[in-house]
Amino acid sequence: MAIAPDPLAQIERWQADGRKTALATVVTTWGSSPRPVGSHLAVADTGDFTGSVSGGCIEGAVVAAAQEAIATGKSKLLDFGVTNEMAWEVGLACGGRIQVLVEPVTI
């Protein structure tokens, strides 16, 4: 019974296919948040992704940031939540706040 996708395994599969990848990880949460610290979202340069860092509220923004990280080769710490100026666009409906580390997977 495979219940949760395994983002780390997916990254290795993508690498085997010659694709570039990034890993997003929930680093901090405040208040209510749908996914705990440590949750992973794996992203390929093509925009494919597996796993989750929220209930779907911010995945789009994280995937975009991950593609940017793949392009620049630089990690980035993203901040989402009610205190964020992007709240109205991609904020968390649950009212929580989370930080997500996006890191390119390099050779």
Binding site: L8, A9, I11, E12, Q15, L23, V27, K74, S75, L77, L101, E103, P104, V105, T106, I107
Partner: peptide
Amino acid sequence: MRSVLLHALRRDLADKRPCATVTDMASDR
């Protein structure tokens, strides 16, 4: 994350060894 670290991590997971990745977000180490 470097691939070599990812592969080592996946080996620990496959062998069911408790472990942790530690990231200095200020310096990317």
